[in-house]
Design a protein around this nucleic acid. Structure first.
Lengths: 194, 194
DNA sequence: CATCAAATTGACTGACCAGTCAGTTTACGT
DNA sequence: ACGTAAACTGACTGGTCAGTCAATTTGATG
């Protein structure tokens, strides 16, 4: 017998991530992925039933990694304000360090040819955020409105912030962009008079 | 002689918009577009040099229409706050009435296979927004930070708001989502103590 | 070492698709 | 009503690509 090689599968996933962000889903043939990953065409289809399966798997991984990274250290903070700031900083930090993964996720999220199930599964990783906001409302720190709306605004604002922060290479300027962006989000959420 | 028929070109553009949002760029063959538009394959390539040319043309149109719609009636408002509220309402209104065009633009914006030139040209339509924010800062209504950052946050927050507003059919709930969302954006931008 | 099942290979296939082009139709000027 | 140039047609082509499969290699196990 012989065990499946995690190396090969890993190489395929890594190569696919890079190529997808460089050339899009439709623009990267599986033949190119396997070639650049140093495996045969058949091997790719041994590890992934179809091209879509490969994309889905990649999405699940990246999304789960992102969620984990963003939640890091949130428990150490006491106030909702501090938690959110930490979350925002984590998110921006992750996005800056993994621009390829970020781009992949954006592309995936807006592509009409991917399964809804993967989308929904991806969202489940962010359940802890819902709690965070609810707790913040209960404590009077966050404006008492429909939490899913706040969550949604925050998420898209964060995505915009990361994209904008990525557009400069000046370290100082970038820091300013991030701080201003996090302020924007916090002022948008906080209860009046806090 | 014979003049080009605006009807045919229009039919192609409309059909392409619908199919692109339903199936993505890569998922819609030109043959299907021409078939559903009721013209021959060759006619599509008579009006548009390539498939990419068709997509670009569509983008330019939609973006320009969106910008015009969003700027509607802004001059009538006096304060930056009122202008922004009006802008936000216009944007959400447009997005709700033209979900296909919105989806198309999102897909386009995140697709790696479209020309950068079209992107940049598209942005030029929104130049008036820059002025709006600058004026607001001068008047002390808006927080005095890098305007492009504010602009960026506002744009992505608006996109998120529209997407969220589209997710419900309950008229009352939708109104609430929009008002809360616009509040989020305004609180994120306004100067403290205004 | 021999065995065997799983991993791996890459040439191949059937489907699909952007774009072409030689021919046909249309409507306008004269 | 005729000539003509542009609009329009759709069968066709050259190329590409997802996925297959028969053959081969690999390595764990007895």
């Amino acid at each position: 017998m012989r065990e499946p090689s995690p190396d090969k599968q890993e190489a395929i996933l890594e190569t696919a991530l890079r190529l997808f962000t460089e050339r899009g889903f439709a623009g990267t043939p599986t033949s190119l992925i396997s070639k650049e990953a140093g495996v045969a065409t058949g091997t790719l289809f041994f590890y992934f039933k179809t091209k879509e399966d490969l994309i889905d798997t990649l999405y699940r991984r990246v999304k789960s990694e992102a969620a984990q990274e963003m939640g890091r250290g949130l428990d150490a903070e006491k106030t909702a304000k501090a938690k959110l700031r930490r979350l925002g900083r984590n998110a921006v930090g992750w996005g800056l360090e993994n621009p390829a993964k970020l781009k992949f996720m954006e592309q995936f999220a807006h592509s009409p040819f991917v399964s809804t199930s993967a989308h929904e599964e991806g969202m489940s990783h962010f359940a802890f955020l819902e709690d965070l906001v609810l707790q913040g409302i209960r404590d009077g720190e966050i404006r008492d409105v429909e939490p899913s709306g706040l969550f949604c605004m925050m998420a898209s604002a964060l995505a915009g912030l990361i994209a904008h922060a990525l557009s400069t290479n000046d370290e100082e300027e970038r820091r300013t962009i991030i701080e201003n962006g996090l302020d924007f989000i916090w002022f948008g959420m906080k209860a009046e008079g806090v």
